[in-house]
Design a protein around this nucleic acid. Sequence first.
DNA 1: CGCAGTCTAGCAC
DNA 2: GTGCTAGACTGCG
Length: 107
Amino acid sequence: MKSFNEKIWELARKVPKGRVTTYKILAEKLGTRAYRAVGTAMNRNPNGLMNCGYSKEMVPCHRVVASSGHLHGFAHGLEKKAELLENEGIKIKDDKIINFEKIVFRP
DNA sequence: CGCAGTCTAGCAC
DNA sequence: GTGCTAGACTGCG
């Protein structure tokens, strides 16, 4: 039985490059409504903040945003998060994802 | 904009 | 070991 936290990373890891997901979706997939717990798990993810990027075992925290497509808190700073997303082809404007409904990954 | 609901992790006793 | 607080959220008033 994987830990709650492990499940979160597993789902987040499934998000393809150039796509994003939301805390809500992840929580729903886990069959819970603890959206906060999802964010907490991400913040405490043992993969290491520096691994929030381009390794296969990574957990792309920067691809996980609020349900409204707005960038919420990020340990590295929202500017860093926006930078990573733009690097994947995702446009960010005023800390918000453009065409969010088009790139959001919903299993 | 502000309050309540839900779950985990961390700190205190 | 048990209990309480805080937190990368969301929905409703």
